[in-house]
Simulated scan of single mutants.
Amino acid sequence: MKAFRRVVLIVLDGVGIGALPDAAAYGDAGANTLRHVAEAVGGLTLPHLCRLGLGRVIDFPGASQQAFVAGAAGRMAERAAGKDSTAGHWELMGVILDRPLPTFPEGFPPAIIEAFEAQTGLKVLGNVAASGTEIIDRLGEEHMRTGRPIVYTSVDSVFQVAAHEEVIPVDRLYELCRTARRILDPWRVGRVIARPFVGDPEHGFRRTARRHDFSLAPVGTTVLDRLAEKRVAVCGIGKIGDLYAGRGLSEQQATASNAEGMERILAAIGRLDSGVIFANLVDFDMLWGHRLDAAGFAAGLEAFDRWLGELFAVLEEDDLLMITADHGCDPTTPSTDHSREYVPLLCWHAGMRGRVDLGLRGSFADVGATLAEAMGVESPCGESFLVSLFTD
């Protein structure tokens, strides 16, 4: 087995491929993000993904098994409890949660809100579970009049603080969120999210790109920590830095869209001689899954597939490409929640000449174990499939 100089790991946020056996316990029986998106638009054209074997692990309108030219393909089940981005990403790097991070469908308890108000000196608005766009439309005018920040949550383990940039400047909003992060650490809340917005009641409000996540640090040792110990460069792109609270990353690059994320992946390949490029493409989840936009989801998948042609053109002989997801987010169901699903696992390197069946992996942690072996470090858990990538 040859060593790899670089590993490019891309997480397609929310691109699930079928309900897990316990999906009904999460209200997700029958979920199948990719297949349902394809059905909603009359078929998907994904030649590069199918070339790697996507059509072998999930049958969907437009898939062509004959397009499986060379690559390794399988699917993975999540071992962790829950179905949020934090749990999924942590498991990818070897930290498996035995219980879900807490959610607050009825709003946050008085102990949290009272502590936040006492430490910030500000009374809050909201404290409900709501859509981020809906709640600023509903409470934006009152917020502008009173200066009170809007606090809300969602189906995820998140404490979100929305504020108009002209009422509470962004730097001040970040300070409020750091305060909330300290309060919420003992509660194991996954993320505190700053949600700045602009606009006015007459012309409408819109969120800006200056969102920032303040995450709970991983509760165990991750593959990223092991890479950092060995001084292996790891470039986190998108919300990777947020999800791991910056731990194990030598650099972090926030992005405003899938398109920007893909641009930054190519730039990092051109710049980094060795190490790991770890990217999350969030639009599938944030823009299309949660907003029940199957057409947008489909267009995003096809745009990513077209971009893969550019990626293949710059990958070198000792680069390993891995593509997966962290959960589902089926936009064809009534729920705007994530869905508990299998995720795809696609791998490729320039030396591959045949088709490799990676089968059903029992944990997302197998990705981290494989990454660790490829980079010469120990993995906290998981079963590496690196040797399989060299089998014709």
Rank of each mutant, 00 (worst) to 15 (best):
A228Y: 00
L224S: 06
E39D: 09
F278I: 08
A245P: 05
S85H: 03
V15L: 14
R138F: 07
H327R: 05
A254K: 12
G18M: 04
L320T: 02
F68I: 10
L9P: 00
T146N: 09
F284W: 08
V232E: 01
P344A: 06
G53R: 01
K123V: 13
A294S: 14
L176K: 06
R353P: 02
A162P: 09
A365Q: 05
L389K: 04
D319A: 05
G199T: 08
D185A: 15
L9T: 07
A77C: 04
A254E: 13
V161D: 07
A19Y: 01
D273I: 06
E316A: 13
C235I: 14
A87T: 15
A31C: 03
A268V: 03
T324N: 03
A31T: 05
R291T: 13
D285R: 06
L173V: 08
T33C: 06
P169V: 11
G362V: 06
A40E: 02
R148N: 14
E373L: 05
A24M: 03
A73G: 03
P105Y: 06
K83C: 05
R306T: 14
L292S: 12
L173F: 08
A299W: 10
M93D: 10
E373Q: 15
F108L: 07
G88E: 04
I240F: 07
T333Y: 00
G43Y: 00
P21M: 07
A81E: 13
S131Q: 11
A233R: 14
P21L: 04
L308V: 10
G88F: 08
K123I: 11
V223Y: 02
L224W: 06
L249W: 03
A325K: 02
V377G: 05
F60V: 04
G94D: 05
S154P: 06
P109E: 08
A299P: 04
D283Q: 07
G18F: 04
I193H: 11
E263Q: 14
L272V: 04
V219C: 12
D185W: 11
E141C: 11
R191N: 09
H48E: 15
G62P: 02
G30F: 00
E134I: 10
H349T: 04
A233T: 12
M93N: 12
Y244H: 15
M144W: 10
S388V: 04
S274D: 13
G82C: 02
R99Q: 15
R340S: 00
V219H: 10
D28C: 00
D366M: 02
E373T: 07
V314S: 07
P218M: 05
